[in-house]
Design a protein around this nucleic acid. Structure first.
Lengths: 145, 145
DNA sequence: GTTTCATTTGAACAGCTGTGCAAGTGAATG
DNA sequence: CATTCACTTGCACAGCTGTTCAAATGAAAC
């Protein structure tokens, strides 16, 4: 089981190869290590409640009980959510008196959220289109370099 | 259950409020609609196999059997993965002869992947630190506006 | 040192999710 | 129109995930 196709003729020849389809792009690091971590990050962001929590923290730092009160959730539930987010390095933690104050870890997190929110706001991305005519291109608000 | 805290004094007073913690940021749209969709997108990206598939498509379009061969997976498995990704508008689909050719939907997807990959590459984000001294800030490579 | 209080953790439950086989679909090809 | 071939879908299984209660932790306040 090849992890990556070595040569074009090495396939069970499905009849098409990357070269046949145009739309060349610069390759992504698929080293597995970073990709694994990235997927864990995405998974953490992929729960509505957790994403809402992060969106809440966009407004500023907050302690656990404050979030629980604001979102109408159990404190332990919020704590668990924050634990997941913290395991992926998405939120920071800091003690302030009796409270523990959480905040977004860094600008990357903010970018991630906004980027997805933008994508989600695009009307074309709402439902699965049967016929997508071609690769539609946005003006790139946001470049990774 | 308040979806959003209405007034500072409306809380069961956890003893701290957003104003108490500094680190103000501009708020995110928490309308629920876009956020729900964004979380679905993240969830789709949050499976290593699916993310690897997208990373593969970064190199160019490909048909199902080609991906299956390259990744060493069952064709039906790959098809299912692509279905999930397509449901979230992350990949495009196009028929070419007998094959159906998939590709990344748009630049947003590329940005999303690279952004997460960058975040994942940061050494600090690898493991959960017990003591995060404060909010660590990056130079912002990437701003949403 | 003891108390207090915010937060965390353990454990169990229900619900969701990915995979792979086999069967179905549908477009192209003859 | 029949056949072929690429892909999709139905289904069942196993494994993972979020929520919650109750109990534990641990830093601060006294």
């Amino acid at each position: 089981m090849p992890d990556r196709l070595t040569s074009p003729t090495d396939l069970a020849d499905p009849g098409c190869r990357p070269e046949d389809h145009g739309a060349r792009r610069e390759p992504v690091d698929v080293s597995g290590e970073a990709l694994e971590r990235a997927s864990r990050i995405f998974r953490a962001l992929g729960e509505p409640s957790r994403l809402r929590l992060l969106a809440f923290l966009t407004r500023g730092e907050a302690c656990v009980s404050e979030v629980a009160e604001a979102e109408g959730d159990e404190i332990s539930t919020v704590s668990q959510r924050l634990r997941v987010l913290r395991n992926e390095g998405l939120v920071s933690r800091r003690r302030q008196g009796k409270h523990i104050v959480y905040g977004l870890a860094d600008q990357h997190v903010v970018d991630l959220i906004f980027n997805a929110l933008e994508h989600a706001s695009e009307p074309r991305n709402a439902a699965p289109r049967e016929k997508t005519k071609g690769v539609t291109a946005y003006a790139s608000h946001n470049s990774h370099r």
